[in-house]
Amino acid sequence: MSTGSFGFLGLGIMGTPMAKNLLAKGFSVTVWNRDSAKCASLVEAGAKQASSAAECVEASSITFAMLADPAAASAVVFGPKGVLEAMTAGKSYVDVSTVDDETALKIGEAITAKGGRFLEAPVSGSKGPAEQGQLIFLCAGDETLYSEITPQLDVMGKKSFFLGAVGAGARMKLVVNMTMGSMMGAFCEGMALAEKSGLEQSQLLEVLDLGAMANPMFKLKGPSVMKRAFPPAFPLKHAQKDMRLALALGDQLGQPLPVSATANEAYIRAKGAGHGDSDFAAVYEAVQTKP
């Protein structure tokens, strides 16, 4: 077990269970969140609470950050009482947020300019895998730091990949989530068409599960779609953000993404209809009605 001290910034659907898993394995953890009330359950579990991101970094040798989007990730690093104010040689920063590669590079350069080490490590997985310690880490940046934090990654996840220079982790995560978002859009269209064709959605799920298209996502989300109840495991607003960032990456690289662009429009409609905080399977609410 590492004797180092760890910080955790950002305590939402993903960050809180990740930090709890570190605490459960006996690691020393200091936490901070913009909404300080979200620290309460972790403090009860044994964490220390910092009053700012800077104080959290100051108290920790390695700080993890799970933040909502590029704007939040940048604000926590560059803003008042932010990460950079406390970053010095000997400290390390591991950003597990989903951001674009430009944001990852900007943050990484700022951390290393202050003498710190930086690793981007966005995760594939949602609320359930975060709680179960079954996330997949997509890492890039300082390979020595990656090797050092293997015990912590193993507590929070089932597999980690080192992909090379900073930016590769962000790009891999966007490709993964773009594929997942597009698949969910097609799945919800299939569920809607089955229902309107007079077919049982439950039977469609069974047929899909028996063939080459069988996958855990359809099996997991199918019942939610049938009930039209979408408790958030991966909020739709974050799924749409990832689709948007992936489409921007495609545009930057000259790669057409017509299927994903169409799926993104459905997520935009669902978010506009008030489903942004629901699970991303709530895109069903957009595809089962005319735009």
Score class of each variant (00 low, 15 high):
Ala170Ser: 14
Ala86Tyr: 01
Asn177Leu: 02
Gly90Thr: 04
Gly222Arg: 15
Glu285Leu: 11
Pro232Glu: 02
Gly167Gln: 04
Ala72Asn: 02
Leu67Ala: 09
Glu131Met: 11
Val31Thr: 06
Glu109Gly: 06
Ile111Thr: 06
His238Tyr: 12
Asp251Tyr: 14
Leu67Asn: 10
Ala239Tyr: 00
His275Gly: 10
Glu195Ala: 12
Phe218Tyr: 12
Ser260Val: 00
Ile111Ser: 10
Ala194Trp: 08
Val76Asp: 03
Val207Pro: 05
Leu199Asp: 07
Thr103Val: 15
Ala19Met: 10
Ile107Ala: 05
Lys271Ile: 14
Glu148Trp: 00
Ser5Ile: 14
Thr3Lys: 02
Ala53Met: 04
Tyr267Gln: 09
Gly79Asp: 01
Glu206Cys: 07
Gln49Phe: 07
Ile268Val: 15
Gly15Phe: 06
Ala239Thr: 05
Val175Arg: 01
Lys106Leu: 07
Ser2Ala: 07
Gln240His: 13
Ala246Leu: 03
Gln203His: 11
Ser36Glu: 08
Ala54Met: 07
Ala246Met: 06
Glu120Val: 11
Gly157Glu: 05
Leu193Ala: 07
Ser52Phe: 12
Phe78Gln: 03
Ile13Arg: 08
Gly141Glu: 01
Asp95Met: 00
Phe27Leu: 15
Val77Asp: 03
Lys38Trp: 05
Lys158Arg: 15
Phe64Met: 07
Ser224Tyr: 14
Arg171Gly: 00
Met66Glu: 12
Gly26Leu: 09
Glu265Phe: 01
Ala186Gly: 09
Ala233Lys: 12
Ser147His: 08
Leu67Met: 11
Gly26Ala: 06
Leu135Pro: 07
Lys25Phe: 15
Lys81Tyr: 07
Met156Arg: 08
Glu109Val: 04
Phe218Lys: 04
Glu131Tyr: 06
Lys196Trp: 09
Ser97Phe: 01
Ile149Tyr: 07
Leu253His: 15
Lys114Met: 07
Gly190Tyr: 09
Gly185Met: 05
Val31Gln: 03
Phe187Tyr: 14
Val83Thr: 08
Val283Asn: 01
Asn33Asp: 13
Val176Ser: 03
Met180Val: 02
Val175Asp: 01
Ala121Trp: 11
Ser197Cys: 12
Met66Trp: 12
Leu11Gly: 12
Cys39Gln: 09
Val155Asp: 00
Ile13Thr: 14
Lys48Leu: 14
Ser260Arg: 00
